[in-house]
Design a protein around this nucleic acid. Sequence first.
DNA 1: CTGAAAGCGCTTACAG
DNA 2: CTGAAAGCGCTTACAG
Lengths: 336, 336
Amino acid sequence: MSKVKISEVAAEAGVAISTASKALNGTGAISPDTVKRIEEAAGRLGYKPNRAAQFLAGKNKSIGIILPDEPCEVMDPMVDGLIEALDEYVNFGFRYTIRHYDRTSPKPEVFTDAFDSIKDSINGLIFIPSFDISTYREPLIKSGLPMISLQIAVDDSFCKSVTVDERMVGRMAAEFLSLFDSVRRVAMIAGDRSASIHRMNTEGFTAEADARGLSVVDILDSYDSMDNAYELTSALIERHGELDGIFVSSYVSPAVCRCLEERGLAGKIKVIGVDIFDRSAECLKRGSLSAIIYQNQREQARRSVIELISLMREGRVEDVHIKPELVLQSNMSFYI
Amino acid sequence: MSKVKISEVAAEAGVAISTASKALNGTGAISPDTVKRIEEAAGRLGYKPNRAAQFLAGKNKSIGIILPDEPCEVMDPMVDGLIEALDEYVNFGFRYTIRHYDRTSPKPEVFTDAFDSIKDSINGLIFIPSFDISTYREPLIKSGLPMISLQIAVDDSFCKSVTVDERMVGRMAAEFLSLFDSVRRVAMIAGDRSASIHRMNTEGFTAEADARGLSVVDILDSYDSMDNAYELTSALIERHGELDGIFVSSYVSPAVCRCLEERGLAGKIKVIGVDIFDRSAECLKRGSLSAIIYQNQREQARRSVIELISLMREGRVEDVHIKPELVLQSNMSFYI
DNA sequence: CTGAAAGCGCTTACAG
DNA sequence: CTGAAAGCGCTTACAG
């Protein structure tokens, strides 16, 4: 129960403290036998390093951040959450550097330039990838840096990711719409289903809708454009006489709501969206939007920092799926 | 931007490092003039202490915890959350001691005995009070320890608290029930409205119900007894022909659901409860319970530890109100 | 009231 | 491959 320190582990294994430290951290060159002996000693004694001492003594305390530079209000909660989480570790002696890249560009250089400019001065990386990471994964892998992808899963073994549970987002949307006795026929306006993130939203939504006897009459891609979303909504209304609900799985719900409001259908056709920001919050307040699924950017950001640091100190981590939260009118004040 | 350390503050103020430390922490006897000079220097340089160094060097690292000993499954999430949060700080060299007391006893000794047994060996306290704290507040105050009350607000200036936003719990319940087109007449089964926590639930519920045109036909106290809740539900049904929804603001929703299930009213009368544990989760799965408001015990616990430690290091903190979360069938897996 | 010094438990050059 | 030693930035006896 009392705290065993590395000096005791070293004594138990019959080596110097510095040898024990290097063995336990896998740094420096220690003979396999010695490593084994030290690890056994540590296990036997139940050694857990004192993180205050590790942080104080350690030198690998520089974190790199690479983010899309979209000047979009939807990006802000994630960035705010990241900075808040990082600042906690600044108190423990960490530093961080943020770089931006143009996520809309297909050229890999927009990313690799940002990466190259920091890769030699950081000991770990958190990045929000673009939808297609294949063009710049090589330099990332070659760097050998511990890294975590945020918000978008990298379907690749070199990098674990922290994302919201995308499928759950869709399921919650379907269940929410099914609460209304009047809702039978629903549609979905997705972002871009060529991206896995939107396919998972869709899968969750259709699965849960099926299970609850909702009929999904249409699924359309808005490509994250408000204008598209407006037109698509208009088309949906014309095409499907009896539409009762719409799930908007990207941040364009304000355009959907505006379209319904203009046609006197607000509240008649129930809408559930994702992402809470000024314009979506206003729709929620007016009632043209019935609920928002918060993708918990703050918690995603916090966890990505925690995971990166444990990766930098201890080695392996796993993919993390953060829970989405349902936001209604009454509790929206907590989220905006 | 680069980290300024206490040695630089000391140099700027023309004092020794130890003097600067004592002045900044308010420990030791330093002349007011010197303190002022040091504080100004710190402010000028933007000094922020390195917490790794503070944690490593500091000696006040023992946390006391006093909890009710109710062997109730509803207590567990809070305890689990507390231990998880505390264990993080154990990694930083902190220790903690847990004591239990019989919350149902009116005798103050049940609490003060627990407190006395640890008060001399701890540097900070987190406690879950009973509903009436007045009988044992004196010894707490006299100890001068930094302390945080958890789950139940101490309406007293000597101690800040971390609680869920009780009023919001009630508001969310009312809004949720109002989503159903069929729901007009609702009732509430509270815990014990002589406790402020339940009065706030009630206030939030009635206010939001009013705002949404629901008519609150009855409010009854269950005194947290499943048997009472069953009987009250039965009485509600008889008394009010057209009851559409019930908000159960203590953990007794399973009894309410059982009563409705037995009468073939499950799903007809919508029920929303609080606290997610095995039995309430089953009702949610079966559909006799439509939703649960999770009072976020995990986050309450985490915050109480964070607040206590910043109280122990830096001084003042404020009351914290944690956001409740709405749990439906589809996302319940995240909570149980 | 002030300061010099030891020490918290690690990691990391550095020397061997 | 191994170890002795310095040092991370603080706090806290202790001496004055």
